[in-house]
Amino acid sequence: MIELDTLRKSYGDEVVVDDVSLTLETGTITAVVGTSGSGKSTLLKLVNRLVEPESGTVRVDGTDTRALPLTELRRSIGYVIQDNGLFPHWSVARNVGAVPRLLGWPQDEIDARVSELLELMRLDPERIGPRYPHELSGGQAQRVGVARALAARPRMMLMDEPFGALDPVIRQEARAELAAIQRRLGATVLLVTHDMGEALSLGDQIAVMEAGRLLQVGTPAEIVLSPAAPQVRALIGEDERGFRHLALLPLAPLVRPNRAHVPTGGAELGEPLAAGASCADALSRMIWTGARMLPVAGQAGEPPGVVAIEDVLAAGRAGGPQTGRSGRPDGVGSGCDGRRNRGTGR
């Protein structure tokens, strides 16, 4: 567990981080969202002490970070930045093995770790390892940057706009990859982004920051359903709220047995929706195909079911103006508690 406790930092008269407290549970992703100049990057740098706070403390598993030697602290925390910061004069393999080398690992262990990480990042160690950063595509360089941050098995990762330099298609892929890797390694991640969509899709916990202050901290559903301030609402996008919410809702609880014998599959409707798909996936397919009911693949060998457009819309409205904030949709909606779906379908 990592606790940021009443952190404050100012430059001259400008307070960039103003009395911020935030707790990161072990093994979760916390996304800090804010516009540029909101102080979110500074907040991140307060954690590995690239910036020293004026007041307040950061505790990692109860230990004040100031009690640790600076370099030891930083070597134990993975750090990923937007322009990846790869050392241009070192090969990919040497970049990835940098922190283990600083920590004095034996060379064969470093080599093994580098290969393991490159494979984890779906980069061929034989082919990519000896290359230099300028020979990599943007997506590859970003993955090498993540691999480098993971090299010394950090308990925690700090990520400052890690996908900012990527084009939209690769960005989607990179997000899915990060989510998968984080689940596998169980690291605690603090991620900074200006993109609410990215925060909602990755974060277990979202912290919205503005002018150095935290406006709201909550689960993605809480942020979407009950934004605590106009700035939060603006970041979500007033007209996109419905879709944002649907994207957070797993489809599974809405699936009914296929009593109406809706045709499953076929050229028009396409393959059944994956069992782990979100409500947004279902609605999108319905809009595109014109179908009011869609087949959904069964979970773990069960027969396929169906989902109806009425149920999807009702689920999406849950928490909206019609049903009130704490309201739940009647009947089938009991599973849609806003806990975000981390299934593989996304």
């Binding site: 590995n48 930045i81 322009d83 990846n84 910061g85 790869l86 050392f87 922190v99 480098r148």
Partner: peptide
């Protein structure tokens, strides 16, 4: 030397 490279060096715990 790009700022990102310097920041990365510090962030990785180079003295």
């Amino acid at each position: 030397v790009p700022v990102s490279v310097r920041t990365a060096a510090d962030g990785m715990g180079l003295t």
